[in-house]
Amino acid sequence: MLHIYCPYCEEMREEEEFSYSGEAHIVRPKDPKSLTDDEWGDYLFFRTNPRGLHHEMWHHSAGCRRYFNVTRDTSTYRIYETYKIGEKPIVTGEKS
């Protein structure tokens, strides 16, 4: 069971209150009609699915019902940070 800090409620809550919504920071194309089939398929279906650091979207579905982002390691399941929609992650795995 993951314990997740909701950045809106500012509380640590149990995983059952949340639902998972997949990879974060995927931007819907502004003009879908101008996209080729390859670009559209890529937007819809193709994901990075890394073994390691992953930025992902969660929904506090049994709480404040707001979306936020989580930086989590997909092999250890350790959560490094949670942050609001629109904010940028601090932990990116890239050396500064």
Partner: peptide
């Protein structure tokens, strides 16, 4: 388990 994971384990609930 709904989340992406490579850990060969999941959550108890």
């Amino acid at each position: 388990d709904a989340y992406n994971g490579y850990g060969q384990r999941g959550s108890m609930h």
